[in-house]
Simulated assay, not measured.
Amino acid sequence: MLLELIALAVIFGLWFLSGFDLDSEKTATTDPLWGYLAAAGGVGVLAIAAAVTAAWVDAVVTVVTQAVVAVLILMIFLGGGEVQSHQGQEHEDGEGNQDHTQQQVWQPGPPRIMIK
């Protein structure tokens, strides 16, 4: 479990550091999350494999802890995918580069309403 948590910290630490740039004249942006989420998903698969192996040898505590780790990784994976999808949609719509003089009104579904 400790190695899985270290792996997740390294994966998302690398993503976090991708947003830093020492050149003050450039705007630093983070890398897309998709590759990092795939790596986290790989750690989740290892957690599931460890839980299955532990269940095979009747190690109940290990099964429970690995299942908790797998569920947490699944939540991170789904949440990160949703965030990245939302940011990608904003970028495609051109909202990511707009000036902030416009207010956007949230509506529960289509159509989208913009107030100037």
Rank of each mutant, 00 (worst) to 15 (best):
L3Q: 15
E4Y: 02
L5C: 06
L8R: 01
I11T: 03
F12C: 00
W15L: 07
S18R: 02
F20W: 08
D21G: 03
D21P: 00
L22Y: 12
K26A: 12
K26H: 11
T27I: 10
T29D: 05
T30I: 10
L33R: 01
W34H: 12
G35M: 05
L37F: 00
A39W: 03
V45R: 11
I48K: 09
A50Y: 03
A54Y: 09
A54L: 08
W56D: 15
V57K: 13
T62E: 14
V63I: 06
T65R: 08
T65P: 00
A67Y: 05
A67W: 03
V69M: 11
V69W: 03
V71R: 10
I73E: 00
I76E: 03
G79R: 01
G79S: 06
G79W: 02
G81K: 01
V83C: 07
V83N: 08
V83S: 07
Q84T: 06
Q84A: 06
Q84P: 03
H86I: 11
E92H: 08
E95C: 08
N97S: 13
Q98V: 10
D99T: 13
H100P: 04
H100E: 14
T101M: 07
Q103T: 12
Q104I: 14
Q104E: 09
P108K: 05
P110E: 13
P111Q: 03
R112F: 06
I113C: 02
M114D: 10
I115R: 07
